[in-house]
Amino acid sequence: MVDSRDHVLSIQNLEVVYSDVILALRGVSLEVPSGTIVALLGANGAGKTTVLRSISGLLPTHRGEITKGAIRLDGDDVTNRTAASIVGHGLAQVMEGRRIFPDLSVQENLRAGAIVRRPGREELQASYEAMLELFPVLKDRWESAAGYLSGGEQQMVAIAQALMAKPKLLLMDEPSLGLAPLVIEQIRDAIVDINRQGTGVLLIEQNAQMALSIADHAYILENGKVAKAGPADQLRADKDIQEFYLGMGEGGRTRLNEVKSYRRQKQWSS
């Protein structure tokens, strides 16, 4: 077990407002113990991406602002720092929708991920090789424009690009979105691999099944608040969560849309 004070990320009582009026987070507290995978689940619009933007310094680009609370990365206060400074401090992210650079080659995408740590030629080469070991399929696409790759391959590029910064903490925003089950499996295995090598992971997902299967802890976000939190296996056994997130509820609500619309009606917190 990890010492409970040894958190790579700790967020206290975070409140975020967009455009001065839209309250998106209402006092979120969350922790990622070093070396663990923490899942952050929640429906559309719950505020998952907003949590991620707050941590990574990208709120200003969306006219968002932290109005309360503090964010600590590896013990240091990084609240309201610039994105560049936070990445320099050991945080990397895979953004929602992948957001690779489509016109750049796979190799250039990876190189762009490493710019922040100014690696030497050999260091860079070693990092490339580590990434190709993690995602061997990228070897054949090395010189192609990343925009021409399949969705799954693009997600791999996005993950590899983030890892090129050698982060202590990796944030991932819905990496399984829009991918086929087999590809999701690959991404899932990669996340486990990455975590085994010592990187903490905060995994944002709507695919609770996948996230809970690999996470150590999980938080459930609802309307900008943490509605539930606990060890992942405990949440996996939770009745509500089985019903609303794992599609195992009465009436066999297994299609995402049905689950989603039902989810909107019923909420844990208000």
Binding site: I86, V87, M95, R99, F101, A112, V116
Partner: peptide, 19 residues
């Protein structure tokens, strides 16, 4: 390279720590 990345997707470039 940073310049090309910024030109393609400014926010994604920021997320990579590019100033």
């Amino acid at each position: 390279l940073a310049m090309r990345a910024v030109a393609i997707d400014e926010e994604a470039a920021m997320a990579r720590g590019i100033s």
